[in-house]
Design a protein around this nucleic acid. Structure first.
Lengths: 108, 108
DNA sequence: TTGACATTTCTAGGATTGTTGAAATATGGA
DNA sequence: TCCATATTTCAACAATCCTAGAAATGTCAA
């Protein structure tokens, strides 16, 4: 993940609807969810969910595939962990001791 | 870190100048850097750096203290690792196996 | 091929964010 | 106290982002 992607990804995660979508898709797992289902679950209009999904796609956080009439979105776990890694590198840079203890208990 | 803070923090990290500032402050360590020095290092005007520092402060990512005529900013490592933890929880939720291997090599 | 469904794209608006220079505030030294 | 320094706040404007509805696109089934 380069800086440009990270900026987009952070921007993608900084919006309430988009964060909600990411969470839904993470929970949904590799099967993903159709756009319409996501819209309903997030409580937004179809065109609005489409707008945000495109933004998430631009940030590389979700991927799309067509399944019959639906378009099914899934979270890209690699991108998410890439973003975490990016953050860890910035956080720990030159100060490993400070960051590491805080992370240990969170390890899934 | 609650969701509201996380949204602000992600927004804070999604802007080029602010990301640059966070990196500078992480590298600077607990001693921090005076606002003027940050402005110079980031290549922006004084009022602009002030604007962005306030945004970072709102997201809880930096703290400020006055030192004589200067105001010295430092990265808040706890907030940064809180943000990482927030991301990990969302990323791993229900799918620990997917996230963990990607993180192992990054552990500082 | 027609019609219904699922989604996206377009357009226009309002809302938020970013930038700049000028003025205001706070500090320390002469 | 008065001045220089360091920073913030203010005001105005430009740029970007968010939202909703309408129209367009793609898919399937009858």
């Amino acid at each position: 993940m380069d800086e440009r992607q990270a900026l987009i990804a952070f921007g993608a995660m900084s919006q309430e609807t988009r964060l909600k979508i990411v969470r839904l898709l993470v929970k949904a797992g590799p099967d993903g969810m159709a756009a319409g289902i996501i819209a309903e679950a997030a409580g937004v209009t179809a065109s609005n969910v489409s707008f945000h999904l495109k933004e998430l796609e631009r940030g590389g956080l979700v991927t799309a595939r067509r399944d019959a009439r639906s378009i099914v979105y899934s979270a890209d776990y690699q991108a998410l962990s890439g973003l975490i890694r990016f953050l860890m590198e910035d956080c720990c840079a030159g100060n490993p001791a400070i960051c590491q203890p805080a992370l240990a208990p969170a390890c899934c």
